[in-house]
């Protein structure tokens, strides 16, 4: 079985994040990492490989530097890595990203596509569904548990109002939540092995995509302004000396919560 795992290179949420002058996420002036939520997808692919036989290919679309995300996934144990990189991609929106990833996935000819539940920068949670729509594949998303059996996948999904079990036949697009597993840390052996693996770089022309279809100018929505919110100011902090609850109650009463 061949598995593609879509991973995104994102600014580290623990560091300062900001926007560039053209309102796109600043991916140069920030510290970039493999989106933490995509580690769960990589881990799940590795588990499938360990339980049977599979090739795990990690795929990213991103700027220079995005190899960092792929390297981490290779260190975790992925077999192969593909980086779609093209100057024409700067400012790509979710529909454009899904077009590029869908074409790359077609070219890889995989049986299973694994994604994270959302990227930690944009937190849209839409790209997996868009890839499924573009490829005409079943969409089996937000898995808190995944079983791959023969030609079928089955997941447990903790939905808004119900816990659901969903089934589809392969090939399929599956996204996983952070409830599904505990991603491994790269081992020393994994780190050494990753040094021997190369990252393949594909450009838009390799994927039959023309720059006019993607990138900032081709986006289907536009950011008109970004404004930094003033940080919340720190309020009153009291140390409980036995009157903490009463002081809290006074605060709640003054603000008409009681």
């Amino acid at each position: 079985m061949k598995i593609a795992v879509c991973v995104k290179y994102v600014p580290d949420a623990a560091a300062d994040r900001s926007f560039s002058a053209d309102h796109t996420t600043d991916r140069v002036g920030s510290i970039g990492i493999l989106s933490e939520l995509d580690e769960y997808a990589v881990e799940e692919a590795l588990k499938i490989r360990e339980a049977g036989d599979a090739e795990v290919i990690v795929l990213t679309m991103g700027p220079d530097g995005a190899e960092t995300a792929l390297k981490k996934a290779l260190q975790m144990g992925a077999d192969r890595a593909v980086h779609v990189s093209d100057p024409g991609l700067h400012g790509a929106d979710a529909p454009a990203t899904s077009l590029v990833l869908a074409n790359a996935i077609s070219r890889l000819e995989v049986d299973l596509v694994l994604c994270g539940m959302a990227s930690t920068d944009a937190i849209m949670g839409v790209v997996p569904a868009m890839i499924a729509e573009r490829l005409g594949l079943p969409q089996v998303t937000l898995a808190a548990e995944l079983t791959v059996d023969g030609g079928a996948v089955r997941i447990r999904r903790d939905g808004e109002d119900a816990v659901e079990e969903i089934e589809a036949s392969l090939p399929a697009v599956v996204s996983v939540t952070d409830q599904i597993n505990e991603p491994r840390y790269p081992s020393f052996k994994g780190i050494m092995a990753a040094k021997k693996k190369t990252v393949e770089t594909w450009s838009l022309s390799d994927l039959d995509v023309v720059p006019d279809q993607v990138g900032l100018g081709a986006a289907w929505s536009a950011v008109t302004e970004v404004t930094r919110r003033p940080p919340r100011s720190k309020g009153t902090v009291v140390t409980d000396d036995g009157t903490g609850a009463a002081q809290l109650a006074d605060f709640l009463a003054a603000n008409r919560f009681v």
């Binding site: 720190k234 009153t236 902090v237 009291v238 140390t239 409980d240 609850a245 009463a246 809290l248 709640l252």
Partner: peptide, 28 residues
């Protein structure tokens, strides 16, 4: 969390919360 709190109590929640519930119910 205190950096963003409008009102914070440094203390043991197992003491503060029950006392707060009692205080709210008393005021109601």
């Amino acid at each position: 969390i205190f950096e963003m709190a409008d009102f914070g109590v440094v203390g043991d929640l197992h003491q503060v919360l029950p006392a707060l519930v009692a205080e709210i119910n008393r005021r109601k």
